[in-house]
Design a protein around this nucleic acid. Structure first.
Ligand SMILES: [Mn+2]
Ligand SMILES: [Mn+2]
Ligand SMILES: [Zn+2]
Ligand SMILES: [Zn+2]
Lengths: 142, 142
DNA sequence: ATTTTATTGAGAATGAATCTCAAATGCATA
DNA sequence: TATGCATTTGAGATTCATTCTCAATAAAAT
């Protein structure tokens, strides 16, 4: 069985939550898709194969996936929260093009190390980094 | 006349926008307050002195203040967009406590320099940094 | 002062996210 | 495998930050 499925199952069990069919379908869909996504994207993707998973359940499940460490919330886009699966992927930061919406991924660890140093000075315990920038990609600088 | 007022006036003129009473009241309120704020905070603050500035006008004016460079949008908090006046202030990044909501400001330039280097590699032109982290402040680590 | 044009306030509309609740399901136990 | 109970689900209603509409008003240009 895939790593992420085991991790998910263990996470749910550790919180006394049931491994239900919708929860499994949602988790699998998240790993089938390698793009950044919002809840509606995910809903549309799932609907193709499984008629009976509701938006409400996706809205309820996404925070569980975040808490389990399988996915991360990313910068919001068009006033919707966006996510990406991160389990098994290098941490990275995002450059978002304000013109075409393209998301460019870039390094992370150097930046994270620096932030860690600053956080330590403040006795702040980081649970989630929020690193990136908005601007214009190569193609949109006319 | 204060620097920021001149800058604002010039900005508005350059976009053929009128320097109206509400626009002036809103801009002044933003610089009277030295905290991070959301639109509703600002509305309540303004209402104390000026009865006739509507939420709609504040919602319309805040993006102008952002575009003029007088204020910046910061991390959102409790599903509301939050802002701070930044004109005349050092750039800085934010650590936000997930428990008590406290916002801690910290250095910036080292991090920004690093990000600049990464952005350059991608030919990405940054217009706004998004730098910070969520986690737990000194007092909330029990 | 008159004309032109942008802006305003008030309330309606939008839409992402959350909530409600009766019906369905997972899972522990016998 | 069948039973019992707590959790979860789908569907739709609700919330609430933000945006929009539009007739009335105010700023600037003439
Ligand atoms: Mn990414
Ligand atoms: Mn700040
Ligand atoms: Zn672009
Ligand atoms: Zn705290």
């Amino acid at each position: 069985m895939k790593q992420e499925k085991e991790l998910y199952r263990d996470f749910l069990r550790s919180k006394n939550l049931k491994l239900t069919k919708p929860r499994l379908i949602i988790m699998e869909a998240v790993f089938e898709n390698h793009e950044h996504f919002n809840v509606d994207d995910l809903y549309e993707q799932i609907k193709k194969k499984h008629k009976n998973v509701s938006r409400a359940t996706i809205y309820r499940t996404v925070p569980l996936l975040v808490e389990s460490g399988l996915i991360k919330q990313s910068l919001r886009c068009e006033s919707k929260d966006i996510y990406e699966h991160t389990y098994g992927h290098e941490n990275h930061l995002h450059f978002i093009c304000e013109n075409c919406g393209k998301i460019i991924e870039s390094g992370f660890s150097e930046v994270a190390n620096l932030i860690d140093t600053l956080a330590e000075k403040e006795n702040f315990k980081i649970s989630e980094y929020n690193l990136g920038a908005r601007g214009f990609c190569k193609d949109c600088q006319k």
